[in-house]
């Protein structure tokens, strides 16, 4: 009914009940253990521009082969110019985002201003590493405008390693997205010099990239949330993706 038993158990039970393979005396007692992690799938990515940043996340929520929800966000706006996007396990994402919001509110009470994007980025790293030995199963992107008004994108691993980079993608479709971004934004493997993309082209490219990921990755699809962060603040919109 619910498939959350530890792997391998079914096989062992099968062997015992059929009696064909007697259990060796030296076998340790079989241990049942709850697996606290699951991957709910989804793709998030972000690209930094000179005076803006673009971030995207799909809204599909999967569990195993089932789609639980087609419209569940992976993004939380943390300040007036900073958004965090998270792939991986949804329950951990909810927890992490809630905790980040609490910490940022505390920062605002203490300093009477909102934290800068790089302060938020460092904070997230600290939070993740704090749970180094029972990590949040989350793959994060922090995106926003830094104190100079430049687009800032930070990529993380699950335990808090992070770096500021021009573009990053995370989640089940990360490999698909990265290769296109490497080519189109990083301009790798190009024989001739290419002009950098302007803002509109970049947003269009981002939409194409998530749509492409939705075509090939079964855990990515339904809708994509598009965040464009510039001097006017955080602008959010939504695009349709493949629904199967």
């Amino acid at each position: 009914m619910m498939g959350e038993w530890s792997s391998g158990e079914g096989l062992q039970q099968h062997m015992q009940s059929h009696g064909s393979v007697p259990r060796p005396v030296s076998n340790p007692p079989m241990e049942h253990r709850f697996m606290p992690y699951q991957n709910n799938g989804g793709t998030v990515f972000a690209v930094a521009g000179p005076t803006y940043a673009v971030a995207m996340a799909d809204t599909r929520l999967s569990s195993g082969m089932r789609i639980l929800s087609r419209n569940t966000t992976k993004c939380t706006q943390l300040t007036s110019k900073c958004v965090v996007l998270t792939g991986g396990m949804q329950a951990e994402m909810v927890e992490l985002h809630k905790r980040m919001k609490i910490l940022i509110t505390q920062y605002e009470h203490a300093h009477r201003r909102e934290p800068s994007v790089n302060a938020v980025a460092q904070l997230l790293s600290t939070r993740l590493y704090f749970k180094r030995f029972f990590p949040y199963y989350t793959f994060n992107v922090v995106v926003g405008l830094d104190e100079e008004g430049k687009g800032a994108v930070y990529g993380y691993d699950a335990i808090g390693s992070f770096e500021r980079i021009p573009y990053v993608s995370q989640g089940t479709g990360a490999e698909l997205v990265t290769s296109v971004l490497d080519n189109q934004i990083g301009k790798t493997n190009q024989t001739k010099q290419l002009e950098p993309l302007d803002k509109t082209d970049l947003i269009d490219l981002a939409k194409d990239v998530i749509a492409a990921a939705g075509e090939r990755d079964i855990y990515t699809g339904d809708y994509a949330e598009v965040y464009v962060i510039d001097e006017t603040g955080v602008n959010k919109s939504k695009v349709d993706l493949r629904k199967e």
Binding site: P36, N40, L68, T72, M89, A91, E92, V94, E95
Partner: peptide
């Protein structure tokens, strides 16, 4: 919807 992992979300049908 809420499940044993703590997954929570609102939906139109579940």
């Amino acid at each position: 919807y809420i499940d044993l992992y703590g997954t929570t979300f609102p939906e139109d049908y579940i």
